[in-house]
Write a protein that binds this DNA or RNA. Structure first.
Lengths: 247, 247
DNA sequence: AAGTGGTCTAGACCACCAC
DNA sequence: TGGTGGTCTAGACCACTTG
């Protein structure tokens, strides 16, 4: 956080591309031009361009230049999951959150396994929230937080944004997360708390969140109604990597 | 492709981590040590470590060092979709491919839209393949390739690996891809060509593949039986990015 | 030949952590 | 205080495209 010129360049250009101020297909200034413009070195510019490329904003062509992509301006953010809630809010629909449960409990067996902790040594905050969009409950979130790391969690916080609380208030250094997505049978709780219509299955997103010291402190199970789930993935063919998969 | 020291470092360490030769939790050599060891500069080492971090192999902690993560050794590759086919092959099960269709056709309306081309100006190769795993057809792939870019496509190629053909034989510079995943009603074709059991829906992965000059040349619709679909996503909290989403 | 992005170097200073 | 990773610099050479 000393200066972060590259971040500034990244944010300026990602912003212009997202708003459409920089049209898809248009050519970026060359690295040398940007270096002059920002009064910095070329490597610093390249760091910013690399970030833009990774996040699907631009595409770099050797000996030709960098070009703005049209991907991503639509269904952002790319490179991660886009829940229906985010999608909806992005296009201006409002969502509502209903907190069904918000309490400190001993660690259930299955959660102890997910959080990789000894169930006798910890307690966890359990939060169950239903997400209502356009009058329908289509997402059910079950969060579990290690209480030694998150000592207090009120219903008000859960109704607003736990995330902002963790980072803004508790200053937890959230670092990375792993998500596993699958489709599973809907259970009784799903049917009770969501408007499942006739759907017999739900999309389950299991989210494991880690701090900067690699502590796993949160496990979340997000259950989505089938028709209201979508996500976008942007994949670059990494340099010398194999990853032949689905290309 | 001149020297690519950073790639060599990346591949050596990603290999060791994948095989378990480097245990999760263990500490990487410091950047200065690696620079000495590989007789290169620190920035080059950092490039390699950055790649390792991005792909979920290691985690860097300022002023402390880089540490091997246990994520990813299991269900690789992270940072993209992992189809059931890949998963199965990774754990030693064999899959079989049945080519149902392999022909050059005028561009159907919906495909023209997906490929963003004028339907009167092109023809496309249409390939329909069923993927059988452990005796069950659980994946149906429908591929469409612009015939001006892929002039020839035989059934043999489709049965083996179209991907290897495109890169190995045609030397197509495949660059990046966008995937959109959703759950949809199974159609008559799904029921006819897959072993759908009683499932009424399928997971649909729409894949748009681009060349280095940003040409969109392939569209693939991959339809998975609900119970045989899973993927893993590894998300880093990028530097100055927002991305508050599901963290 | 000029311009582009890709790679690499050999330094530098900083903030942070552990000792 | 010494080691770590984070950032930045001012060069360099390369392969490639374009005029």
């Amino acid at each position: 956080m000393t200066k972060n010129i590259f971040l500034q360049i990244y944010q300026e250009y990602s912003g212009r591309i997202q708003t459409g101020a920089l049209a898809p297909g248009s050519k970026m200034p060359s690295e040398n031009e940007l270096a002059r413009e920002y009064n910095t070195s070329r490597e610093t510019v390249r760091k910013a361009l690399h970030l833009l490329a990774q996040n699907g904003y631009i595409h770099k062509i050797k000996a030709k230049g960098s070009f703005v992509l049209d991907i991503g301006r639509m269904d952002f953010p790319i490179g991660g999951l886009v829940s229906f809630k985010e999608m909806s809010e992005r296009i201006g629909r409002k969502s509502q959150t209903i907190v069904h449960e918000n309490q400190l409990i001993p660690v259930p067996d299955d959660i102890a396994a997910h959080l990789e902790i000894d169930k006798d040594k910890y307690w966890v905050w359990k939060v169950i929230r239903a997400r209502e969009i356009e009058g329908e409950c289509v997402i059910l979130d079950k969060d579990y937080f290690r209480s030694d790391i998150v000592p207090v969690l009120t219903e008000d916080i859960s109704r607003e944004s736990i995330y902002e609380y963790l980072e803004g208030e508790l200053h937890l250094p959230i670092s990375y997360a792993k998500k596993v997505v699958s489709v599973e049978d809907a259970d009784e709780e799903d049917r009770r708390l969501m408007d499942l219509l006739n759907y017999t299955h739900v999309v389950v997103v299991r989210n494991y969140v880690y701090l900067e010291d690699t502590t796993l402190f949160q496990y979340t199970e997000s259950r989505h109604r089938l028709d209201k789930f979508q996500f976008v993935d942007f994949a670059r063919r990494s340099h010398g990597e194999e990853r032949k998969s689905d290309f």
